[in-house]
Design a protein around this nucleic acid. Structure first.
Lengths: 339, 339
DNA sequence: TTGTAGGCGTTATCAA
DNA sequence: TTGATAACGCCTACAA
């Protein structure tokens, strides 16, 4: 049933010439008789010959495949970024092999090994929320395999990275809240092992400080990016004697949970409590009230990541780790806009 | 910088034995001296040896990689299904290589070729909305390469497929509308080259007929699964002299557009117009009003697809195309629930 | 312009 | 129990 694909051997035999000639003809190298070339091309087309990429990879020690590790691709941020990665990479002739860590450290470590065994030409990664030890990534770099991280970037490693200005984004968001009249501003922060969480947290703190507003420990809660964890954090905040009048949430998903909790309790958004998220997931403009959020150029993040990656791949000799920081934009919507 | 990975040759040389012995020892074959085996294993671990999957693929004519082609992975349905596919496949030792057709026929054709060149062990696909000619897929089957389709399944091909009962799902949804008291029920249908669109359409028609309700051509509109196209279709329906009092939409995304349009016009949902979608995307329970919809087991669809695929892959001799039809479930929410 | 030989990393076959 | 040798499909010298 399953017939062996056509090889250059088949063509060579049929034409009574050597495989090297066929190889040369097919690759359009000079030094091959025009007539020979034509007959080879004709037969190749007729037999529907396609070069075996596996064999090619073996001789070239290059698979034209790049491994991508992300926490999860049901999150729009990641699927969109991957779209950008894929568009740039496929145009350059590369395929991608995607692994999900499912936010799990052990899975992530296993993913790295799997991809390395497949001899991918390099890795593009966004770490899991659990990951603290980066040894599995630095081992990759030590092997001389190109690696670039995006979004949840790898701090302290000798590798390129693409991120947004989390600090500025957070700062502006909170500053805007203050300007709009909110005073008791809480923060639902992300896992603190992630740089992005720390930066957004710091932006929040500095914005408050710059306006002489005190920061209260009780106003800081943590979540893990899930809707449910955001809802839980909001629930706790509502128990406070002096309830906040605004919440800056580390990401949109938990912000959805915040909105759900507030609505369930009949608390008006934004009159009683304002909410700001981060990322601008598509649903943020559909939810009720529409969510004010710090928008990230997700697709462009992917493209830029891929570009940095290609740059390193194609000129590994003068490689110097680069850091790209893309701009965010505050999208003001109804969750903060008092009417 | 980039050092060559360790090979069995390196191990053989260092130990002064032949590569075949090393190979055997590493694979745990019998007929190898216990002491030899131990020294090989020790050295392999010490050198951090990992077999080159590319070389293995070449000799085995098997890459342990399966190609997946989907329209788009920012749609939750697909990213979730892929999660299921990946979980089942990776447990069986397979990697996946994902391509997006971006709903474009030419891209889809190119994807097939790319994947075939990479010598994937098989294909799992969901066709683009544009695709009418299935020749590129039947060519795959003719080559003896396992192929299974899901969701947007390939009608008429000798291949396994996994779908939900679109007809029943639609029928029940519309029947429910009628039972609830709606009478002028419109349908925003999907591209008619897709079987799923036709089945949902037919379910709609039959449900109306079974209740002696007339079906009016003016009540049938088309969309392409985008939010915008749903909005546009609703806009047209509102122009009718006898506006519908309910709309059954082929999918959730265009249903979001329908809701947006109705809200923009100040038309009450569900009192003036009820809306039902299909799929149950996560947003559907967050949007306001929450969307009544025909829920699909997206993750399970992926798992089942992968299982069917593995079955064929592991026993290609007794392969018979199979068709799995999973159940849907009507999720009643506020977009149809008169209060 | 074309062919031969060797190699990429591994397995399989056969002989020792 | 181990070692040559050929093979997977292709490319790269080098030789003719």
């Amino acid at each position: 049933m399953k017939e062996r694909p056509i090889t250059i051997k088949d063509i060579a035999r049929e034409l009574n010439i050597s495989v090297s000639t066929v190889s040369r003809a097919l690759r359009g190298l000079p030094d091959v008789n025009a007539a020979t070339r034509r007959s080879v091309e004709t037969l190749a087309r007729k037999l529907d010959y396609h070069p075996n990429a596996v064999a090619l990879s073996l001789v070239k020690s290059k698979t034209y495949t790049v491994g991508v590790i992300i926490p999860n691709f049901v999150i729009h941020f990641y699927s969109s970024a991957i779209g950008g990665i894929q568009d740039v990479l496929s145009q350059a002739g590369y395929n991608i092999m995607i692994c999900q860590s499912n936010e799990n450290y052990d899975t992530e470590v296993a993913n790295v090994q799997t991809l390395l065994n497949s001899r991918v030409d390099g890795l593009i990664v966004s770490q899991s929320k659990e990951t603290e030890d980066l040894a599995h990534f630095s081992a990759v770099i030590d092997k001389g395999v190109p690696l670039v991280s995006f979004n949840r970037t790898l701090d302290g490693l000798h590798a390129s990275r693409v991120e947004v200005d989390d600090y500025q984004g957070a700062y502006h968001a909170v500053e805007y809240l203050i300007r709009t009249g909110y005073r008791r501003i809480a923060h639902i922060a992300g896992p603190q092992n992630l740089q992005l969480s720390r930066h957004r947290y710091q932006g929040y703190l500095d914005a408050l400080n710059s306006c002489q507003l005190t920061t209260e420990d009780a106003y800081i809660r943590y979540c893990d990016f899930s809707i449910e964890s955001g809802r839980k954090a909001m629930h706790e905040l509502l128990l406070l004697p002096d309830m906040p009048d605004a919440v800056f949430v580390v990401s949109d998903y938990p912000a959805y949970g915040v909105i759900a909790e507030l609505k369930a309790r009949g608390i008006n958004i934004p009159d009683e409590v304002a909410v700001i998220g981060f990322t601008d997931e598509p649903f943020s403009s559909l939810i009720e009230p529409t969510l004010t959020t710090v928008s990230q150029p997700t697709y462009e993040i992917g493209r830029e990541t891929a570009r940095l990656f290609l740059q390193q791949l194609e000129d590994p000799d003068h490689f110097e780790p680069q850091q790209r920081t893309l701009k965010t934009e505050l999208k003001v919507r109804n969750s903060t806009q008092r009417v």
